[in-house]
Design a binder for these strands. Structure first.
Lengths: 243, 243
DNA sequence: ACCTGAACACCGTTCAAGT
DNA sequence: ACCTGAACACCGTTCAAGT
């Protein structure tokens, strides 16, 4: 239960949420602070351990205090998703503009991947929480972001229909690749391998000769290469859409 | 709280766990029965509403009775995943054998899709629960099944390395497509649209002109066509692996 | 052998009350 | 204005006790 210790940190009050520590070592509560802490909590300990009571404790506050800023646990999780995906908006969209659509698509795909890898235990939430509208496709689930995406494609000469196809294809692509990659990353974080659970080490595989002989190749991950290869194939497919 | 009513069912006492219905109209508890009921429960009411106590009630038993057959809630959910994916094994693998690898891959992909669509609210569990081994990739997460998959590909002349690539590419493909499709299906099941939640109807879109003008095309789903198209492209890509 | 009652430690959430 | 205490209805899980 270590807390902060000597506070006294001095941060430039440039943007909104930089409201220095109070004397008691507790920053002024607020939606932003709560979401930031929730993301950190999930990054470290996983979603299922995130509890209103524990999150409150992390902020030196009773759980009930959180309800002034967040309607409930479900909306908290939605907020976490939104909060994390905002990194993408700041990163990808703020940079200097891409000069071709393949470059644009490449960059945004890599941007989403960077966010996912940065928060492997949050990404399943991004993937699985019901989006604000039924036609939004995780992980590309922010209205603002999708609007920007369609705008960019239009600028590069895509028709409306084509843009929708590209949006869908990219969402599907990113979801599949990144959910698998982040699952592996999140798994590595713990796995202090237990005893009688079915961990399926090389021992339990005896009944499956091919798995046994391939376990080496199956184990070595190549997510980055797979992602890059599949991404380039997808971009080729998109080029095909345009004809 | 309706129960069974007049029981009197007569079942052949062929295998081990068939200890005939008690007079009270309650089938003999057991892992199989519990899992079947759990799947049905999730299909109807969703995973978050599944509770040991409620599942017990559904089986006319106190929650504690379940612990004799299932170690706990987590393992129950793993059991549900396994149980559902077994449908695939029975369906796809039991049929007459495919005569070419493209046919085989096509069939198995369609088989997985059929299972996913049959249990849209279970599929997220299939996608997201940590698999038995870290190199298993949901939704293709059964050791037995993957062994069969590799065996089939070997039969069609794929090398070990190639087979691993195909396994990974298919898992990624299926995960992305089917998670998005089942999310939509599961969403349709409820959505008795609420009032002040962010449902993002055509109204809330006013700030996003492109989304507004495309809402029609975005809303009409084309999951089947997308799936089939992408599947065939994937099969082409696989053909490329073989060179 | 199989199920239940009672109990424990924990949840999310509400609301009157404190400061 | 902002937080807390106490309370409510619910969890998962354990274990001694019933039949």
């Amino acid at each position: 239960m270590t807390e902060g210790g000597a506070a006294g940190g001095r941060d430039s009050a440039a943007d909104g949420n930089s409201t220095v520590t109070t004397g008691a070592g507790r920053r002024p509560l607020g939606r932003e602070l709560i979401l930031t802490e929730a993301v950190r909590f999930i990054d470290q300990r996983g979603q299922d351990r995130l509890t209103m009571r524990r999150l409150g404790a992390e902020l030196s506050v009773e759980a009930m205090a959180l309800y002034r800023y967040v309607p409930g646990r479900e909306q908290l999780l939605d907020g976490v998703v939104e909060h994390v995906m905002n990194e993408l908006y700041e990163t990808t969209m703020t940079k200097e503009l891409a000069t071709s659509w393949p470059e644009y698509l490449e960059r945004m795909a890599q941007g989403v991947r960077a966010v996912a890898i940065g928060h492997p235990r949050v990404f399943p939430l991004v993937a699985v929480r019901p989006p604000a509208a039924p036609w939004l496709r995780p992980p590309l689930r922010s209205l603002r972001w999708v609007e920007g995406f369609l705008e960019a494609l239009a600028k590069f000469g895509f028709s409306a229909q084509q843009s929708v196809l590209v949006y869908r294809a990219f969402a599907t692509f990113l979801l599949g690749h990144l959910l698998l990659e982040t699952a592996t990353l999140a798994g590595e974080a713990e796995a202090p391998i237990e005893d009688d659970t079915e961990v399926a080490g090389t021992d339990a595989l005896s009944a499956y000769p091919r798995l046994t002989s391939l376990s080496a190749q199956l184990s070595q991950d190549a997510f980055e290469d797979e992602f890059d290869d599949a991404l380039h194939d997808l971009i080729k497919r998109v080029a095909h859409f345009r004809s």
